[in-house]
């Protein structure tokens, strides 16, 4: 069964034990101006939410290429969250509208490929909505957890992975 993180620390490295129960592996693309800041706000306000999400900072949700989402699922992510500024508040005027359109199409496409629509979520979280961010992540985590782990992908290492090493 999948472990909680890509690299759960080994016991010899410190006194850390791997988390016992299965937790989904979630990828979150957050726009720099609103949702990343909203996630910061959740921290500043010392709220808690499940640790299953890994956050990738993008300038704008409009920067989120469907390929990134597909890649995450292809590599076994259990869920993908995209969060950005509320409609009308985009730092770049209209990037989030592009994401909204893309989301609708992509969700259907993923469903067609056998990835439940509950695993892919788009949300608006402003820089001041730390509480909302914590709530969104908690809800999304339980929503995906309820679906259980995905079938492991049948796929060899990609070009990119090969490129990760730097020998």
């Amino acid at each position: 069964m999948a472990q909680s993180t890509a690299d759960t620390p080994r016991t010899r490295a410190g006194q850390v034990e791997p988390t016992a129960i299965w937790q989904p592996r979630l990828v979150g693309f957050l726009c720099n101006w609103c949702s990343f800041a909203g996630a910061d706000m959740a921290g500043t306000s010392r709220l808690t939410y499940p640790a299953a999400i890994r956050i990738i900072r993008v300038p704008c949700t409009g920067r989120v290429d469907p390929l990134f989402v597909a890649k995450a699922f292809q590599r076994g992510a259990d869920g993908v969250l995209v969060a950005g500024c509320h409609p009308g508040d985009c730092h770049y005027a209209e990037g989030n509208y592009y994401m909204r359109r893309r989301y609708v199409l992509l969700r259907d496409l993923l469903e067609f490929l056998g990835i439940e629509r509950e695993r892919f979520h788009l949300e608006w979280v402003s820089a001041s909505e730390g509480k909302k961010f914590a709530r969104v992540v908690s809800e999304f985590t339980s929503q995906v957890a309820a679906l259980g782990p995905r079938e492991p992908p049948r796929q060899g290492p990609t070009e990119l992975e090969a490129g990760t090493s730097n020998e």
Binding site: A6, V27, L67, F68, K71, A72, R75, L160, E161
Partner: peptide, 13 residues
Amino acid sequence: DQQLLAEVVAITR
């Protein structure tokens, strides 16, 4: 693209 994909790759497996 390469950077963001590499980030995705780094946390999925």
